[in-house]
């Protein structure tokens, strides 16, 4: 039985990775889940310098999901390379490094510093975080900006580049095509949907940032629709995510057009969720006598 996929020229032993920001750099989760089981670990967004992130409260549960406004707190690329990357090298899994920035220069600076590390397989460029004021979503909702920043990053990058798209747009196909025109090797979607919760007892916003990104099973049908639309509008591979909790959810994304899938918020509910998704995909293939996972990808 073959579970391996080719994703933008990188051979992954299976199509399952983690959503950036839900898994740290794998260190904390390694106590609970076997990282060797994963096709890849996608790390929390890292910038050229350390970022403090937003005030608290940063997270709140909502019906069928959660809102977060962490604000991309990260220790900066130097610490990431010395500590987190060295840790991840101890595992038999590929590494996708998520990169964030406030400006084009900051993205390029981070990518250039990361280029020295051979153990990084791909970059995922976060142009879709709804919780930072400059950069992030400001780049990800304008197709001209998406194309421009993709092109600039491609020029300096020594690894294949995945552009992570925001769902907070009118037409996801246009954004996917803009990334492809800019030279992206792949796209990933969806990042979180911008949302809000009000605490009626305190009569104030539940999150200090007022708004946050909605994730979890509540967003899965929206994510699946967008993965389907985007993957049929471009010729580059898609990393699909948004509310995946089980193997059944993951299989829906693969059939809709994703070559890989990522598990995010589900990790908070079940620290073994990623592992269980891989095992569940295998069980499905056995049940239906599917010899190659690629026979299930983009069949719809």
């Amino acid at each position: 039985m073959n579970l391996s996929v080719d994703f933008a020229g990188v051979k992954m032993k299976n199509p399952v990775t983690t959503c950036s920001g839900t898994f740290g750099s794998g260190m904390e989760f390694s106590e609970f889940a076997d990282l060797n089981m994963l096709g890849a670990v996608t790390t929390k967004g890292v910038a050229s310098v350390p970022w403090e992130g937003n005030p608290t409260p940063r997270v709140i549960e909502t019906t069928g999901g959660m809102l977060n406004a962490i604000g991309l707190q990260n220790p900066g690329v130097d610490v990431f390379l010395e500590r987190d990357m060295q840790f991840l090298k101890g595992f038999d899994t590929k590494v996708i490094v998520n990169v964030c920035g406030h400006s084009e220069d900051e993205y390029l600076d981070a990518v250039e510093k990361l280029n020295v590390e051979d153990a990084i397989s791909l970059y995922e460029i976060n142009i879709s975080c709804p919780n930072v004021k400059s950069g992030g979503i400001a780049f990800g909702t304008d197709p001209k900006m998406v194309e421009k920043i993709t092109g600039a990053i491609k020029k300096v990058s020594k690894k294949p580049v995945i552009m992570k798209l925001s769902p907070n747009v009118t037409d996801i196909k246009v954004m996917a095509q803009a990334a492809e025109s800019g030279g992206a090797d792949a796209i990933s979607l969806i990042n979180t949907l911008t949302g809000m919760k009000i605490d009626i007892n305190r009569r104030s916003f539940a999150l200090a940032n007022k708004t946050g990104g909605l994730s979890g099973p509540a967003i899965k049908p929206v994510a699946l629709r967008m993965v389907y639309e985007a993957s049929h509008a471009v010729n580059i591979p898609v990393l699909g995510m948004g509310g995946i909790q089980t193997a059944e959810d993951a299989l829906e994304f693969l059939m809709a057009g994703a070559t890989m899938v990522a598990v995010g918020t589900a990790n908070f509910n079940n620290p073994k969720a990623t592992e269980e998704v891989v095992k569940g995909i295998e069980a499905y293939m056995e049940r239906y006598s599917v010899d190659d996972i690629n026979d299930l990808i983009k069949i719809l």
Binding site: G21, T22, E31, P57, R58, I70, T265, N267, F268
Partner: peptide, 14 residues
Amino acid sequence: EHMACGIGACLGCV
């Protein structure tokens, strides 16, 4: 503080 993962990965509870 409000937490999401409880194990140090999500940086929700700083």
